[in-house]
Design a protein around this nucleic acid. Structure first.
Lengths: 122, 122
DNA sequence: TCATTAGTTCAATGATCATTGAACATTAAG
DNA sequence: CTTAATGTTCAATGATCATTGAACTAATGA
């Protein structure tokens, strides 16, 4: 299972694919929370509030295939990170405006964390 | 046929719906060209390069329902305009970054116009 | 009046979507 | 070795998508 998951190289990230991937409430919520979480990676399990294991696995794959997130296997977990740099170089300003626009809409602090702490160990 | 087409009021424009609507090459091309055309309205007929009458009618309806464009009947035509102001107030910076990102990808000058002129009379 | 222009509506089609539950694979922990 | 934790894969399902052609509506122009 420590296999390499396919990620499109930065220069292949396509705008229609990115827009389509983000045009879903669940996936938008996932990237909004990833963005709020700063540089810290998160796991699929942290998004089970938004759907079943299967559903999250599906959405995470969509985000990965579109080039929006990077997924790194670590033990039985997957460490998810936003591909901020790649998206910024390809579509300057885009991700930030989406995140900012999402902030107003997102259910308040969907992770229910007072401040970091639940991923102190990495 | 001079009936009113339904448009969502600005405050009801939803980000997932906007992203979904733009996550299609044809619709992305349409809004990119509308954007390039400045304030000048355009008609459905000017987008037949991207599909049949039926297809364009379908895509234009999607863009309208998402709140991205405004459609005003004028004779047998429909005058299409980008809802720049509404989108800007709702999702600041978003449309501009999308347009800018699209510019690099779009087939060069899809309308083949040397400079305005084809809609001098309005 | 009659034909033309511009776009819509409808039904059909094949494709892709998002979701579910069951089964499975992999790693970690006791 | 056994069990638990974390995700993935698969098949099935119902929903929505994008497209087509035929028929239609409404406004314009000869």
């Amino acid at each position: 299972m420590t296999e390499y998951l396919p990620h499109p190289p930065a220069e292949y990230i396509a705008l229609p694919a990115v827009l389509t991937a983000l045009g879903d409430e669940t996936r938008l919520a996932i990237i909004a929370i990833l963005a709020r979480n700063g540089e810290r990676a998160m796991t699929c399990g942290q998004f089970l509030q938004f759907g079943s294991k299967t559903a999250i696995s599906y959405h995470v794959a969509k985000l990965r295939e579109a080039g929006i997130i990077h997924v790194r296997p670590e033990g039985t977990k997957r460490l998810l990170t936003l591909r901020r740099g790649d998206l910024e170089s390809r579509f300057p300003g885009f991700l930030d405006t989406v995140i900012a626009s999402t902030a107003a809409t997102l259910p308040y602090n969907s992770l229910g964390m007072p401040e970091a702490a639940q991923f102190a160990g990495e």
